[in-house]
Design a binder for these strands. Structure first.
Lengths: 218, 218
DNA sequence: GAATGAAAACTTACACCGCTAGTTTATGAG
DNA sequence: CTCATAAACTAGCGGTGTAAGTTTTCATTC
């Protein structure tokens, strides 16, 4: 089959199908040949649209990150905006958990990740945080969200309860975690996020409001 | 070469060499043939000592996790113990950043990860936290540490400053992040950890101390 | 001490992987 | 109409994890 009258592939169709395969079968199960087959095409044809497989994965990761809502930084106070963003970020990642290990390794050349970082940083600076602090806060929350989406505490626990009872006395009920995985993960996320934001709010009164009053007085 | 008089391989030697290769060249550069060559042996010989490559990686991940110090939970108050543990955990992971993407995906069948979870959970329960809360706190801190070791904010940024200036106004100086990567990451970690612990301390006075006094009064 | 079974190296080989090169033909621009 | 480009193809390279079977040594048992 030579060049077809209507192109069989588009970047969007490739990315869309890749994400569906990753969601269904995991990151390790995505090969260029399998992806091409799902698109009704031979493997190397993908290279007419992307230079490497990693470029495809970057595009997939970017569409996932693109679903994150940072609009709160334009309309709400910084604390509420951070909370909204963190939850939206978490929802976007847990909707496609299999791509998270790839996605979590830095923003790279992915526009959506950079736009997100830009919005968060800008919102915090506008709220009065010193630039260095704004960078740290954005990074800290990203760590927390990415970590929570990547390494579910419950996932990967073994079935046999005896194994835990014998060696790890406090994990006697660990096998129950699998049943409640989602609620454990969400509970841990909610608790950790609240604690983080509580701590940041305290820091804010010390750092920003003190500086502001000192500045207006001097 | 048939069976040698003295075994050429041991599990320990395999794990040690695998970690060295991963540290040097990254996770993706570790193949069974390359690992075997570094050990002076042919590829399939590894399968006399490990059933799969993943089993080797699990063992590597477990030795890294084994370096984490949880002794604080036996000797210090829970807040100090959590802080010590989190820093030790972070140091253990950042000493071998290339294995983190593999390691961060849950405790699985790795004894050191399970022992760590057991120590943290036990320490928190002993301090008076309700079991469910103890689970959540341990998970939340693990999210944060793993996320910080995995997805450095700075790593992966592109060289060209113009690229950022044009599209992401607030990230105008983002290219500088690469220069200060380590200090940004450590600063973000320190700030986030302090905020998290600050929030947990506040929660503790509400949850545990209130319950205890109510219990002693009732 | 001989016999035997497991252990630990080997070689060979399979199916799959990402990707390159070169071919063919349809498209769209001049 | 010409022609470079685009988008599909086929063939194939070097690499991957690992299964299968071979050989020899070690460790154990009679």
């Amino acid at each position: 089959m030579p060049r077809p009258r209507r192109p069989l592939l588009t970047r969007d169709r490739i990315v869309e199908t890749a994400l569906a395969l990753i969601d269904a079968d995991g990151l390790g199960a995505l090969s260029t040949r399998r992806l091409a087959a799902a698109l009704g095409v031979q493997g190397p044809s993908l290279y007419n649209h992307f230079a490497t497989k990693d470029e495809i994965l970057d595009a997939v990761a970017d569409t996932v990150t693109g679903a994150v809502d940072t609009s709160g930084f334009a309309s709400r106070d910084w604390l509420a905006a951070l909370r909204d963003w963190a939850w939206s970020y978490r929802r976007a990642l847990t909707a496609h958990p299999n791509i998270v290990p790839y996605l979590a390794q830095g923003p790279g050349r992915r526009p959506a990740a950079l736009a997100m970082a830009d919005a968060v940083y800008g919102g915090l600076v506008r709220a009065g945080w010193p630039p260095a602090r704004a960078t740290h806060i954005g990074a800290a929350l990203r760590y927390f969200v990415a970590g929570s989406a990547l390494g579910s505490f419950a996932r990967g626990f073994v079935e046999d309860p005896e194994l835990y009872a014998a060696h790890y006395p406090h994990l006697r009920q660990a096998h129950r975690l699998a049943e409640h995985q989602q609620s454990v993960d969400e509970g841990a996320f909610a608790l950790g996020l609240d604690a983080l934001l509580h701590g940041l709010a305290a820091e804010y009164t010390h750092t920003v409001e003190t500086v502001e009053s000192a500045g207006s007085n001097g």
